[in-house]
Structure formats: C-alpha cells, structure tokens
C-alpha cells in the first residue's frame, strides 16, 4: 500500500512537470493532451471506483496547487471523474484497449465541458459558446487524450502488476 502511494505520487509529479513544460512544445492544433485526466481514467478503469476516486482527488489537488487560482476546483472534478468511471469497472472486459480509448474520449469531452462551463460561469457567463470550444478545444483534446491513453493504460497495468507481485511476497 505504501509502495503504491509512493509510485502513484511519483507518477503524478512527473506528469505534472511534463504537462506544464514539455507538452507546450508538442501542441497540435493549439491543444495539448491532458495527461492528468488520462491517468485518472486509466487508474479508475483498471482499479475500480475507490482507487479511482482517491487518485482523481489527489491528482486534481496537485493541479489546483499549480494552477493556483482556486483550490478545490480540479480536485472536485477529478474526484467525480474517478468515481463515475470506476463504477463501470466491474462490467468491462478490461484488457481490451478499445474500451479505454472509448471511455477516454467520452470522459474527456464531459470533463472539459465541465471545466469550460464552471470556469466561465462567473464573470464571462455571457460569452459561453457551444460550437467554437467544442471544435477547437474539446474534440482535438479528446482525440489527443484517447491516443495517449493507450500508452498510459499500458503503463498503469504494468505498474499495478509489479506492485501486486511485490505485495504478494
């Protein structure tokens, strides 16, 4: 358990650094993938809703600390992203990569809409649009996320296999 926490924390730390620095240089169509969200999705699909919720919460909290405007915003979204996907975990054939690609697409779209809505809810509520953000931000990001989710899922599965093997000893 302790090992798992350390491994997850380390992964989140690395992803955060990549997300805020290197990814800026691999932007396609002005959009970068949201690796933190992909990590939450992969963990909750492969490990269930409790682990998904805890991972989602702490990943979101880390993002809150770094984006530095409102604490609790991403934590809340991450928590519910983890719970909602984790709840379907038992009904899935989890070794199929198409499953993870599909759910990443769906959840990325839902998640980014939530971020857009909640963030522009206050002062700029009159400027909320539907077509432009969908075509120019959300869809490209969701596709990009879906692509990266294949590799991230492979990593999460391998990591958990190793952690399970270590715990059995």
């Amino acid at each position: 358990m302790k090992l798992k926490i350390a491994a997850y924390a380390f992964t989140i730390f690395i992803i955060l650094i990549l997300q805020t620095t290197m990814l800026e240089y691999v932007k396609i169509l002005n959009v970068k993938p949201n690796l933190l969200l992909v990590f939450i999705i992969c963990v909750s699909i492969s490990r269930g809703n409790v682990e998904g919720a805890v991972t989602g919460f702490f990943t979101g909290l880390a993002q809150d600390m770094l984006s530095g405007r409102i604490i609790g915003f991403y934590s809340l979204l991450g928590l519910y992203a983890g719970i909602s996907l984790g709840s379907v975990h038992k009904r899935l054939y989890r070794d199929n990569f198409i499953v993870i690609v599909f759910f990443t697409l769906v959840l990325s779209i839902a998640y980014e809409w939530m971020v857009y809505f909640l963030a522009s809810f206050g002062e700029s509520a009159g400027n909320i649009r539907f077509f432009y953000p969908m075509v120019h931000r959300i869809l490209p990001e969701a596709l990009y996320n879906a692509f990266t989710s294949v590799f991230m899922y492979g990593y999460v599965l391998k990591l958990n296999k190793k952690l399970d093997a270590l715990e059995d000893k």
Partner: peptide, 10 residues
C-alpha cells in the same frame, strides 16, 4: 511553466 490545461492563458 504553462498552465496544465488548454483553457487558460496563465
């Protein structure tokens, strides 16, 4: 560094 998401120019 940049903001982790795609929405904000921070």
């Amino acid at each position: 560094a940049m903001d982790p998401g795609n929405w904000f120019n921070i």
